[in-house]
Design a protein around this nucleic acid. Structure first.
Lengths: 169, 169
DNA sequence: AATATTTGTTTGGATAACCTAACTTTGAAA
DNA sequence: TTTCAAAGTTAGGTTATCCAAACAAATATT
């Protein structure tokens, strides 16, 4: 039994929107899904039927829409991809919040499991490794602005790093 | 005059394939494009007409296909996105070569200019900053394997970093 | 040159998404 | 309870891709 049937980008977006609406409003309605995805309500119905047939949502006409357990699991995976990508773009690469969100929304359909896992690990490494962390990220911002390394600054930075105590043995 | 008309992912793929073929074989032929994109030759013709009408390729039936200057410029941008993403995935995140290539091929259609620029800058920063660089990346590989930081190793790593001479003033 | 093979194009058909506009159902106010 | 506005669905149309298979052109072989 496959947990992740091959879904189109479009259907993935629907699932994600439904999960979001379930969280904020308890239920998902056609109108709200349409608004969130910026499409017309008429287009939503067809997608809901498709998701219903795949067993990912409980759909019966004129009724509220809920995710099935399988649908929820997939929706959460998509949401997870989105959050990871957005975090990387916004918090690490310092991409503007709205742009990061929009780009994550497209990239979430493109990334594969291995890359995702490595990305999660990488972000964690940057944040926990004593050679990097927050202050290092601040230097990245500077590097971006000045479009290159600055020998003077690099020396000062290294000196400061050396002045910090080593972790306990 | 817009340099980048909105192209579908599909048409972007065609342009990229044509650029590739121009480089390796001087000229792009329908058959080779079809092979590279894993679609049937019959489907290629339609796409070529579309690209021809947009002024991105020189297309006349039964003749060789070449990129127009505008088409070439766009194709190079796409190629650039691809290369940047693949490099990040493969060389930084240490994702398997084939997977990195396939994922870059999908993500290249999703990334926006700001994120791309920041990503380029970020990779450059990692490679030029004395606090990171190649040896730091090796530690990332280790961090991935062990799924977390190791206090012992971190201390040793910091000590080694300190033993290196500071850059000249 | 005549024929065979390869390459390229056309045609007809399928599917996925979307839209607009008409129609149906639901549920709340009069 | 009747009525009516909001929400949801259906029907018909468009566009973008793709395929299969028939057909046409170009090239290679004999």
């Amino acid at each position: 039994m496959k947990t992740s049937p091959d879904l189109s980008e479009s259907l993935e977006d629907y699932l994600e929107a439904i999960l979001d609406l379930e969280r904020t409003s308890k239920v998902a309605r056609t109108k709200d899904i349409a608004e969130k995805l910026a499409i017309k309500p008429g287009s939503v119905t067809g997608a809901l039927k498709a998701l219903g047939e795949k067993g990912l949502i409980n759909y019966s006409p004129y009724n509220f829409i809920t995710l099935t357990p399988q649908g929820k699991k997939i929706a959460q995976e998509i949401r997870n991809r989105h959050k990871t990508l957005k975090h990387f773009l916004h918090k690490i690469l310092q991409v503007d919040d709205a742009t990061a969100d929009a780009t994550a929304c497209r990239m979430e359909h493109a990334i594969d499991p291995e890359s995702l896992e490595k990305l999660v690990c990488f972000v964690d490494f940057i944040q926990t490794c004593p050679r990097t962390g927050e202050d290092w990220l601040a230097h990245f911002t500077e590097h971006c602005r000045s479009k290159g390394p600055d020998a003077e600054q690099c020396r000062a930075c290294l000196e400061e790093l050396r002045s910090k105590p080593l972790p306990e043995k």
